[in-house]
Amino acid sequence: MNIRNHPMRFTLLSACLALGGISAALAAPKVYVANETDGTVSVIATDTRQTVRTVTVGAGAHNVQATADGQRVWVTNNGTPPADAGHAAHQGMSGAAHAAMATSGEVWAIDTATDTVVGKVPVGNHPAHVVVSPDGRWVYVTNGGDNTVSVVDAGAMKVVATIATGAFPHGIRLSPDGQLAYVANLKGGTVSVIDTASRKEVESIPVGKGPAQVGFTGDGRLAFVSLSQENQVAVIDPRTRKVLRKVPVGNGPIQLFATPDSQRLLVANQGNRKTPGRTVSVIDLTSFKVTASIRTGRGAHGVVVDADGRLAYVSNLYDNTVTVIDLAAHKPVATVPVGAGPNGISVTP
């Protein structure tokens, strides 16, 4: 949050000062990282660029998502394991990287004021990604082992609907207006389009090999899906629901994220453990060409951009770190140690 660029925030700051609430007004956004190998969530303070807290969650914590108001963070996992049970690390996105779990997974809610777990909801088998409706009321979880999406009532803390998708749904994102959910079906080669009002799949878009994650520009003009087995990103027209073109990127692209001005798309190139990727590709959304390749740690997996569009945060799966990138300079400015096997990543407003 850049207070200098938002005059109304001076009024808010003054009011907080008058009420003795300066600490709340000046609180910096936080980055949350799901560490799959050790079943934790790392909390990074954006002002100090240090991990300030580690939250224990369920086994195989895979993805996290902050709500629009920043009060909650949701994390997918496989539930609290038996005392003598271990769990395998996420090794990449090709082949049988995600073996379906035998028991149902869960999605947990973390209160960002205290960074404590305040709710747990059973969902489907092998939950992967999670997103939240703009009003924070509904939580959507992809279940890779069930070929479904669970719809969770955030207030009641229970599943209220289950939606069929393509084969092995993984990444999911909502359109900017919240009316549609796009789901990347990793083993189906498609993107499912879900109407969030009717809670039904209304279209299946053929996209290519190994679709891992989807995304939208903030203006809703374009949608995207990373093709982990083609080393490309497919660009989709949300109006026609057709692939417009494909853009070559690095090895094993996984997560992607558009800048708030809808001008650039960042793509994390994970590669694999034997030949790890170490870059984020920057695609210009006017020319649809890669205009920069930014160095990261080994196994760049998750990527998110802050609300001001100044900084990007990238989880490095094989280095157990997060790279902080200055998007004006197109260069890394910090490396933050986190837990083991960092995957999904999200930043509060």
Rank of each mutant, 00 (worst) to 15 (best):
291 T>I: 15
116 T>L: 12
5 N>T: 11
217 T>I: 05
195 D>F: 02
233 V>M: 08
255 Q>P: 00
129 H>N: 03
163 I>K: 07
280 V>S: 01
297 G>L: 07
152 V>F: 08
308 D>M: 07
165 T>A: 04
322 V>P: 05
232 Q>M: 15
161 A>K: 15
157 M>G: 10
177 D>V: 12
21 G>F: 06
319 D>S: 15
346 S>H: 00
39 G>R: 02
303 V>R: 00
206 P>Y: 10
264 R>N: 09
137 R>A: 15
167 A>G: 04
160 V>T: 15
148 T>R: 04
131 V>K: 00
43 V>R: 02
18 A>I: 11
259 T>G: 07
75 V>W: 04
119 G>K: 12
196 T>D: 08
67 T>V: 01
63 N>G: 09
47 D>N: 15
135 D>K: 06
100 A>E: 05
80 T>E: 14
96 A>E: 12
221 R>I: 03
349 P>H: 07
326 D>S: 08
126 H>K: 11
336 V>I: 15
176 P>W: 02
56 T>F: 05
154 A>F: 05
223 A>E: 01
230 E>H: 04
302 G>W: 01
287 S>H: 07
348 T>C: 14
112 T>F: 04
298 R>E: 10
216 F>P: 00
95 G>Y: 09
11 T>H: 03
273 R>Y: 14
16 C>E: 12
42 S>P: 06
214 V>P: 00
94 S>H: 14
93 M>Q: 11
249 V>C: 10
315 S>K: 08
226 S>D: 02
312 A>F: 04
204 S>D: 09
87 H>F: 14
17 L>A: 08
136 G>Q: 01
228 S>E: 13
165 T>L: 07
159 V>M: 06
224 F>R: 07
237 D>R: 10
124 G>C: 13
101 M>W: 07
17 L>Y: 03
156 A>L: 14
